[in-house]
Each structure stands twice: as C-alpha cells, then as structure tokens.
Design a protein around this nucleic acid. Structure first.
Length: 276
DNA sequence: CGCATTTCCTGGAGGC
DNA sequence: TGCCTCCAGGAAATGC
C-alpha cells in the first residue's frame, strides 16, 4: 500500500537511473490501465527521452518533451520496478518500457488495478476515463497555522487526514502512526482538537513520514522498492497491524476499530477519547 | 455543500 | 486438498 514514503523511495531510486534515458520499446499488456490522451502511448514515448522524475503526493511523474508527461499512481498493489530485461514477467504486468543502452527495463505491475497510468499531453481535459483528482498541499509544506485552518471542520480527524484533497500523501498506515505519536484518537472531531495537539499532530506527521522515508517505506504485502527489495519501516510501526500487541510506549494492548471505513489501530491509553 | 458509505479488484487467510 | 467466504485498501461514485 504505497503512501508518500514508499512513493518517495521509488522516485529516489529511479531518478538518476532512468532520467535522460531514451525509450526504445513500449510494451502494453493491458491497455485499459492507461488513461488520458487518446493517442496510443507508444506514439508519444517511442524515441523520446525521460526528463525529470518527480513525486507529488502518491503520484510519480515522468516528464517527457513538454507538454507530454506520464503519471503513475500505484493504488494499493501497484509496483514500478526497474529490473534486468531477461527477468521473467510477473503476472499483472501491464506496461513495460525498455531504454537505449540499458540492460534494465521499467515495469508497471498492479494486480488489483486500483492504480493506473495517465498519459498527459495537454488535451487531458477533453479526454475520457478515470481522472486524476485535485490534491491538497504536501504535508512537508504545511505550517501550523495553515494546518489548523484545514482542521476547522467536523470530520473525524482520521477521515480528514486520509482525504487527499485536504492533505496529500498520507494513507492508512501513516495516519495511524502519526495519530499515535501525537496522542490523538482517530475518531476525534478535527475542529475540536486543542491547539497544542494540533501542533503536535503536524510535527508527528512530518517526523513519521521522514523516518519512514529513511527506512525505505513499509512492506506489509505488496509494496516493493524500485529494485524489488522490501522496505523496513514496518518493523518500527507502533500501532499499525499490531492489534492485541503491547503499545511500544505504555504496554497497553493496541486496539483496532473501523474509522472512515478503514481498519484503524490505536492505543486506548496514549490516545484517549477526549470529551469536548 | 459536507460528511458517510459503497464500490471497484485480486490474492491471501481461514473455515469446513 | 479443494471450495467457499471474507477481508485488505486509494479514491471515485453514490447516498443522504
């Protein structure tokens, strides 16, 4: 389940290995995971070279000759791997790119197909199919005053943090980890959180994400780094996927409940329900 | 509009 | 072993 740290890891590992490379061959195994421009992706990319590789929230962008860009969203089971060309294709490989003067190729694999590839060529607005929705600010760009303003609504704090149009990049894992680090219960109404807790929560979000990036993300089931290796931050999770296990801060058993339709892990002692 | 709930999809886990 | 059901989740779609 790639969230911001996992996507950032992949971008850092791809950047430098594929920037400047010229696309030699495009293999489309599933056309219906590619959205955006009407013209086939092969025609856009063949013989063109990759400019900058960047991340915005959970999206990865390859710049080609303007205005052409390719955006990858990994959804929950998507992978973007750079592997030796001779390596066997995994099932659910939907798109591959080979490069001139390179023994490695890029592969987009996504069994559950919650992800996708968007080909943007300036005609995007008129194109059909799934669209890339608007994004809120990057967590790292937020300052306390701006964050406090975002929280002025009745939504449950966890649902708010998961809403990509308000803050972009957090998913289920890092929401739970940040809420625990800040001592905030996931069902707290955002607008009722004390100013001190609001500041603590923003700091917790940033530090949790930074630490996760340092450990190359969390691998539970599907996520892999660009070279196929797992991340290691899952070993440092304090609440996520730890139901019944002792809180790493106070030893109280971690509980699980549904919030915003998602499994949410929290410590009932460190994250008390506060009455307004 | 705001907020909550349902939907898409597959592989893995667990029951029998 | 095989067959069945259920569950995980990002984010769009739908409901109220």
């Amino acid at each position: 389940m790639p969230e911001l740290p996992e996507v950032e890891t992949i971008v850092r590992e791809l950047r430098g290995r594929i920037e400047g490379k010229t696309v030699q061959h495009v293999q489309v195994l599933r056309r219906d995971v590619i959205y955006g421009a009407d013209v086939p992706i092969e025609e856009h990319l063949l013989g063109r070279s990759i400019g900058k590789v960047t991340r915005r929230a959970k999206r990865i962008t390859f710049d080609f000759k303007p205005p052409t860009r390719v955006v990858f969203h990994l959804g929950m089971s998507g992978r973007l791997n750079l592997v030796p060309c001779e390596e066997e294709l995994k099932t659910h490989t939907h798109l591959t790119l080979t490069f001139e003067k390179s023994r490695h190729e890029l592969r987009f694999v996504d069994p559950r197909r919650f992800g996708g590839v968007w080909l943007l060529d300036g005609t995007y607005e008129s194109s059909t199919g799934r669209s890339l929705g608007p994004l809120g600010p990057e967590p790292f760009d937020l300052i306390p005053a701006k964050f406090a303003l975002l929280l002025q609504r009745q939504k449950q704090i966890k649902a708010l943090l998961l809403d990509q149009t308000l803050i972009a990049g957090l998913g289920n894992i890092y929401c739970d980890e940040a809420l625990h680090a800040a001592g905030v219960h996931p069902t707290s109404r955002a607008g009722e959180i004390e100013a001190d807790d609001t500041r603590r929560l923003l700091r917790a979000i940033k530090s949790t994400l930074h630490r996760a990036i340092r450990h190359r993300g969390s691998t539970l089931v599907d996520y892999r780094r660009a070279n196929g290796d797992p991340g290691s931050f899952q070993r440092l999770h304090r609440v996520y996927n730890r139901e019944g296990q002792p809180c790493k801060r106070c030893r109280t058993p971690i509980e699980r409940m549904q919030v915003a339709g998602r499994s949410s892990y929290f410590c009932p002692a460190c994250q008390p329900v506060r009455d307004a």
